[in-house]
Simulated assay, not measured.
Amino acid sequence: MPNNKSKPRPSRMSVYLYIPNIIGYIRILLNCYAFAICFSSKRLFAALYFLSFVCDAVDGWCARKFNQASTVGAVLDMVTDRISTACLLVILSQVYRPSLVFLSLLALDIASHWLQMYSSFLVGKASHKDVKDSSNWLFKLYYGNRMFMGYCCVACEVLYIALFLISSKHTENLMDVVVTTLKQGSPLSLLVAISLLGCSIKQVINIIQMKTAADACVLYDTEKKQKR
């Protein structure tokens, strides 16, 4: 006799207590404490910030492993990513000159991801990472290859952390610090060079993402008017 009983629906509280979501809450606490001590203990800040970033990969793995993917978890994950990166960029804008460099990166990061999220849900996609219909090979490679995406994302965070750690005083010239570091020929120089490349690629992808998402919104409006 077939079993017509439907699977029990998880309660609201159980979703909040999914393992990936709990990791997300831990990330928030780590970031809060890290930024509270960022100027008094740079190395501890860097360690806690990077640990929070690593947890970003761990919660994704847990979501797939335990079948605990959730909308609230996805939103929590992205919001935590954007806010933590935004806070670090704001700090860097106070340490280096011209500060507009980091503020521009902040604006680009938020605008591109927000537009991508909005346009994805506007056209009924389940995830903002669904870019199969895109004609841009770099954009498709970024969201289609986890290794490449991981490199670009890690490179950005490592570069920002490294720049914060090597700053010795406020209002330093960004270009002077980067050039001096690269000329040292040390392991730090190699790390900064590799991170700078990945971060640059990430910014190009952010621009492509913002333009692609804006085009999707315009297309949606155009098709909507044609149906009237």
Rank of each mutant, 00 (worst) to 15 (best):
S119V: 12
W137P: 15
Q68T: 02
G185Y: 09
N173P: 10
A63Q: 03
I22L: 14
M147F: 14
A69S: 09
S52E: 10
Y33M: 09
Q184I: 07
Y151F: 15
L92S: 02
D176V: 15
M210E: 08
Q209H: 06
V179R: 06
L163S: 07
I205Y: 03
S93F: 02
I194G: 01
V204R: 03
H113S: 00
F139S: 07
S11G: 02
L92N: 02
M78C: 00
P20I: 05
K202C: 04
L105H: 02
K129E: 13
Q116S: 14
V90Y: 14
L88F: 08
G60E: 03
L106F: 12
S135E: 15
M149C: 11
W137K: 13
G73K: 00
P98A: 02
Q203A: 10
D77K: 00
S200R: 05
S70E: 00
R27H: 12
S14M: 00
D130T: 14
I26Y: 07
Q226R: 14
W137G: 08
L48Q: 04
G124L: 09
K125G: 08
L108M: 12
T71N: 12
L48I: 12
M175S: 11
L48D: 05
A213G: 06
I161T: 15
A155N: 06
Q116A: 12
A216W: 08
F164D: 10
D221N: 07
E157Y: 09
T212M: 09
C156S: 08
L163F: 07
Y33E: 06
L51M: 15
L30D: 07
L165D: 10
I205A: 01
V15H: 00
K225A: 10
S104A: 11
Q226K: 10
P98M: 01
R43N: 14
L76T: 00
S167A: 15
S93M: 06
Y220A: 11
V218A: 04
C217N: 04
N136M: 11
V15K: 01
C152M: 13
Y151E: 12
